[in-house]
Design a protein around this nucleic acid. Sequence first.
DNA 1: AACAAAAGTTTCTTATAGGAAACTTTTGTT
DNA 2: AACAAAAGTTTCCTATAAGAAACTTTTGTT
Lengths: 209, 209
Amino acid sequence: MNKYDQLDKHPSMAVVDSESNTRKIEKASVGLQLKAIRTKNKLTLEEASKRTGLARSTLSKIENEQISPTFSVMQKLAAGLDIDLPQLFTKPKESKITGRRDITLNEQGSPHATLTYEHELLAVQLRNKKMMPYKSRIHARNFEHFGEWIHHEGEEFLLVLEGEVQLLTEFYEPATLTEGDSAYYDATMGHLVISTSKKDALILWVTAE
Amino acid sequence: MNKYDQLDKHPSMAVVDSESNTRKIEKASVGLQLKAIRTKNKLTLEEASKRTGLARSTLSKIENEQISPTFSVMQKLAAGLDIDLPQLFTKPKESKITGRRDITLNEQGSPHATLTYEHELLAVQLRNKKMMPYKSRIHARNFEHFGEWIHHEGEEFLLVLEGEVQLLTEFYEPATLTEGDSAYYDATMGHLVISTSKKDALILWVTAE
DNA sequence: AACAAAAGTTTCTTATAGGAAACTTTTGTT
DNA sequence: AACAAAAGTTTCCTATAAGAAACTTTTGTT
């Protein structure tokens, strides 16, 4: 049996389609996701094996959809690769955000996650959404990202849930936002949010392309 | 070996704790979740078995954490029980949020403020936005709109800022959302939000067409 | 191009998940 | 309480996942 005749052993998964609002059958693949995550982080199977404690061959088989991993294995994958478990079967639609998330949170290779932001994606189960909502905890007075503008396609809305932040942008004066304040801007303009209070800030973000 | 000496075969999972903001080890259990979901729906193992196509014994073993289900089995569970896959390993609090996320309200366009809702549009200065953010105060226990579904184009995201609301929708079970909970849904499906607590509820809404 | 080293795949074996049926416990009725 | 029926658990067997090592393919160097 060569590598091209493998058969798909995996059943499909029902998901809510936000376009049509019908429950439709869509294939969720741990294999493709795993491979995407691993290659994106420039890891070889051997390195991924070391991090997760799983055999090289096992990883290969999962990536090629020859086996369906147990939950226990999925947990090892998530922990070892420093990702959230649902990422193993959710398509990373918004490359911008997940990209940003990689920069700040899990920068595998250099294993220290930066401490400035922690993002919690919301409504991750829904695919092809028009909007991408997430909450971010911005660590207090941490200016590690200062000077690095964030640019990406689309528009962004934010609401301060807790704390106080400074919204810095390429073309406007810095704005101080406190609990309940909101902002809306074109995300192609460089922007950056930092916490200015002694405690962490909690932000709700919604982006749309 | 009786039922009390079973050993825990499952590894733990690293999760970010939003309180302490540290990465701590927490156990994620498909078994406990499954049992909670099944009993909540008043299903016997036999009925759950019919719906999912899995053996009664298999379900029992998963619930008692004697085995770690494969991803393939988890998909069957989610599809058969009509839940989102992450609900199988997310604590009910969060799963209600993200797992639920399929419903709500907005009536921009019909500008009359009713007694039940008070809308505050945000970012009004900007025209031609992709998203429309606004805050709504939903008056306590006012059921004036009960029974009238709201339908409109686009998708909607909501986050509960204060209070507790019930999100009613045409196609899903009602969901109770409390402070910090969010939902995302196709707004062409009938939807309605009412306050279920004694005090008013405050909601952030973002819609996109 | 030839070779070596690294990366990835497949095979083979062992461990464990999943299903059928026997067994045990719980529930409800008299 | 005694019994029957239903619900849940365990055993035993088969199917399949996970690991070790052999094998193949790709990459990089001369």
